[in-house]
């Protein structure tokens, strides 16, 4: 079975976590189905004509830019990826850059793009980009970071020696899974910044919407009492609906 081809089509789990969307929504938002056989009729096989290959970039799969880059008539060369076993780079990690003009510098991971084995390091590995250039306006030059491959481009920094190091996933005595630096056997903790999503930096500092969000104490209340009633019987009892007639017996053949 060509498992890597199947896995490569999927959106990374860190992307799903960051988006705070259900995975099915993300899949639906970027899929391009051109033809689908009607469902529920025995004469139709389960045939789907849809786009198979997508070019994942720094644009996230649910955005309009992604849709634009993967437009129906746009076909780009296939990107070959080195399979990464267990993902070990998270937002907020201190990494050292191993390639390019900023080789040897250390920085903080600001974005993770698992679909391409990329991380973006804040303020490093940058180029200048002119935006908003017009006939009458020269544009504004901004500095933008280029992504780096996690396989060759960056390495995690050992917290003790502050040197780049290989890491290993191990279990503590308590059964927690941790990253351990191979150089000094120190645990490299997963940073708090990795909890960030589109909606909040971390769950504790999320600002609740008074009109739409149910508070924690209301949610924790248990209002269910077990009774010998079906859901409909419960509702009828509560609303005071009386009914004495019983539908005639029905049989299935």
């Amino acid at each position: 079975m060509r498992i890597f081809g199947y896995l490569a089509k999927k959106v990374g789990d860190l992307t799903v976590k960051y988006s705070n969307f259900p995975e099915s929504y993300i899949k639906r938002s970027f899929e391009q189905v051109y033809w689908k056989n009607p469902t529920g009729y025995p004469q139709y096989p389960k045939a789907v004509v849809a786009r198979k290959r997508f070019r994942f970039t720094t644009n996230r799969p649910w955005t309009g830019q992604f849709r634009q880059q993967n437009d129906r008539d746009v076909h780009r060369k296939k990107v070959f990826l080195e399979p990464v076993g267990e993902w070990s780079f998270f937002r907020g990690d201190r990494v050292e850059i191993m390639v390019g003009k900023d080789k040897g510098k250390q920085g903080i991971v600001s974005q993770v793009i698992q679909e391409r084995n990329w991380v973006i390091v804040e303020g490093l590995n940058t180029h200048l980009r002119t935006v908003g250039k017009d006939k009458s306006f020269p544009g504004v030059v901004i500095q933008s970071e280029a992504p780096l491959l996690v396989t060759t481009g960056v390495k995690l920094v050992d917290p003790e020696t502050l040197k780049p190091t290989e890491i290993e996933w191990r279990y503590t005595e308590e059964g927690d899974k941790v990253r351990v630096s191979k150089a000094s056997s120190r645990i490299i903790p997963i940073p708090k910044a990795s909890e960030e999503t589109i909606d909040y930096k971390s769950k504790e500092v999320y600002i609740e919407n008074e009109q739409k969000d149910t508070k924690a104490d209301v949610i924790a209340k248990v209002t269910f009492a077990p009774k010998l009633n079906t859901f409909e019987m419960d509702i009828m009892e509560e609303m005071g609906i009386k009914e004495d007639r019983v539908p005639a017996k029905s049989y299935w053949y």
Partner: peptide, 26 residues
């Protein structure tokens, strides 16, 4: 049949601050 929701405390979403509830099947 739509129940009367005038004094209902529940709102459309659950706050992210609320702890995840993991419950066994009844």
């Amino acid at each position: 049949i739509v129940p009367d929701l005038t004094n209902c405390e529940l709102k459309p979403y659950v706050s992210y601050k609320a702890a995840d509830v993991i419950q066994s099947e009844f």
